[in-house]
Design a binder for these strands. Structure first.
Length: 571
DNA sequence: GCCGTTTTCGGCCCGACTGTTTTCAGTCG
């Protein structure tokens, strides 16, 4: 049971309770707990195994903590199963259809015996829904449309995938009359690795046609709502986009409100309550009087807080840190001096050594490392000793010609099942740097996988552990590994961990970055580029590092070449 | 069901939009 599974069970519990007319605050408690769990990158199973007190997590008390423990230990939630005897569990699925909440689902069930999405489709087609109290022709029609378009859970999209859409949409909206500011808020602005929808905030004159322009956008598949200050659409791609329009004086408050996270906003709202103030999307209010809200900075100042970067707004201690003046000074893309993981045509890269080096120089880097795969990865024509030595010579020749960038010789060497590295020490020794990674035997036990890596780190030529958990977002789970022990192993051996900047890896994730920082282990942010274009992934890695509270000093490829070489020497 | 340096009981965010309603309930974020 991973966190998503546990959160899903709690959400289901909330749905069924709501249909069952339970106390609404009790329902909300389950939803809140599910949300907290989803926001954790560390597994609940892990915490339970460590015997941690789950009720320390926000929104999780004694009761739900015990339920989580039960779920982890048995895979079941007895209270949910009890409830399912009375309320069909599929009703919870029906609530995923937009426009259907607990009340309507309950009516459909009680009046028409509709208990699944298939039932719902049949009832809508037969025209039985429009006769129900509170329903009508239009509602029946929308339900039919949405049921037909229904494809199960809409997956969160990679942030890199939605960026292009966001850019085009903003460019389109910019040409509306009377629009002043346009910005994407929400998890996109917090730079989460995936986003569920896009939240666009605009400030505009009252008579602006920005909302009309929004619903007229080429890619719009369905206009869900269209009011005077907000509108929601679904794009053809399935992505939901919300636009909200507020007056200029409310810009800061609205930006803060719609950037979230929800947990961060709630924490701040509680601070406001204590001071007899109220925060909403229009400003900070004392009674009916708006006292601030033009900028986010003003709002934080109002509560005696330093400005908190969007990437930190997850209610993971950033408010306390802002109060005590100990927020990190987050790393930026401009701090990066080189890229330490990339491939060429020698293995599975698309561009030549020379092209990669020149492209890196164009991006202002002082150094790069060429790290093609090692021999074990035969499918990508991994380098054996002979071909690697040849590549080293090629790099030496190129270094003599290129003046503005230094190419480090390197390898992405496989960590074999027994923890040995895929090339002999005397070969590894000839290189400037070794990136080590796992590409096989993903399914070892946690103990074996962890020890495999720790043993590999004993090799004096192990520098950087690449994509340390092996996860591919939306495609493959992380292999089972004790990342805390791995970080400690890196610390003991003078090794580093990678933040792989590929948009579907972003591995280490934010929480693990923070753990590394807390344990005093530095990371390398690398693109693992397989083409010149991939070099631009760097900013996604930097985003993830920022979410993990990392400063420039925590990242080895912000160092000068001399300082970097000293770190790689493992002395 | 959660939460608490004023509370262990009594609060718990609220504004916008839609459709079905003659003044508002349901849903969403």
């Amino acid at each position: 049971m991973n966190n998503t599974d546990i959160a899903r069970l709690l959400d289901r519990m909330a749905d069924l309770l709501e249909i069952d007319d339970a106390n609404p605050f009790r329902v909300r408690a389950y939803r809140g707990a599910a949300q907290t769990i989803r926001a954790q990158s560390r597994g609940m199973a892990d915490r339970v195994a460590q015997d941690e007190d789950l009720s320390k997590l926000p929104g999780i008390g004694r009761d739900i903590a015990a339920k989580i423990r039960t779920i982890v230990e048995t895979g079941h939630l007895p209270q949910l199963e009890k409830l399912e005897e009375r309320v069909p569990t599929e009703l919870s699925d029906m609530m995923r259809i937009e426009g259907l909440g607990a009340k309507r689902v309950k009516t459909l069930y009680r009046e028409l015996g509709v208990r699944s999405i298939d039932d719902l489709r049949r009832a809508a087609r037969a025209g039985r829904i429009r006769a129900l109290p509170g329903f009508g022709d239009k509602t029946e029609h929308t339900i039919m449309k949405r049921v037909d378009a229904w494809s199960g859970q809409a997956p969160r999209m990679l942030i890199a995938e939605v960026e292009e859409t966001a850019r085009r949409l903003l460019a389109h909206l910019k040409r509306a009359d009377g629009v002043k500011r346009l910005v994407v808020a929400g998890s996109y602005r917090r730079r989460r690795e995936t986003v569920g929808d896009l939240d666009i905030l605009a400030t505009a004159r009252k008579d602006s046609d920005v909302i009309q322009r929004f619903t007229d956008f080429d890619d719009v598949g369905e206009v869900v709502s269209h009011g005077s200050t907000r509108s929601t659409v679904h794009l053809e791609s399935g992505l939901q986009v919300d636009l909200r329009v507020v007056p200029e004086v409310s810009y800061g408050a609205a930006l803060h409100y719609f950037t979230g996270s929800k947990a961060h906003n709630i924490a701040l709202r509680k601070m406001a309550q204590k001071r007899d103030l109220k925060i909403n999307e229009y400003g900070v209010y004392k009674g009916k009087k708006r006292i601030t809200g033009r900028t986010e900075d003003e709002i934080y100042k109002q509560f005696g807080l330093a400005y908190i970067e969007p990437e930190l707004r997850e209610n993971r201690g950033e408010i306390e840190a802002a109060r005590e003046g100990r927020l990190p000074e987050l790393i930026g893309v401009a701090d990066i001096r080189g890229d330490l993981h990339m491939h060429t045509t020698a293995t599975d890269g698309r561009d030549s050594l020379k092209d990669m080096a020149e492209a890196a120089a164009e991006r202002g880097y002082e150094y790069i490392a060429i790290t093609d795969h090692s021999r074990r990865l035969t499918v990508v024509n991994g380098l054996d000793e002979k071909r690697l030595r040849k590549q080293i010579e090629g790099i030496e020749r190129l270094n003599e010609r290129l003046r503005n960038i230094e190419i480090l010789t390197g390898i992405e060497v496989d960590i074999l099942e027994d923890g040995s590295l895929d090339l002999p020490d005397d070969v590894l020794k000839a290189l400037d740097l070794r990136v080590c990674s796992i590409h096989s035997k993903f399914r070892l036990s946690r103990k074996k996988q962890t020890e495999r890596v720790l043993r590999a780190m004993d090799n004096p030529y192990f520098n950087i552990f690449a994509h340390p958990t092996g996860r591919l977002i939306n495609k493959r789970d992380a292999y089972d590994i004790d990342i805390e022990r791995v970080i400690e192993g890196a610390k003991n051996n003078g090794c580093f961990l990678e933040v792989n900047a590929q948009p579907d890896r972003l591995d280490l994730n934010d929480d693990a970055c923070r753990m590394a920082r807390d344990l005093g282990v530095k990371v390398a942010i690398s693109t693992d580029a397989h083409s010149v274009a991939n070099l631009d992934y760097m900013r996604f890695g930097v985003d993830q590092a920022r979410r993990g509270w990392l400063e420039a000093g925590d990242v080895i490829n912000t160092r000068s070449l001399t300082a970097l070489k000293r770190l790689l020497a493992r002395t």
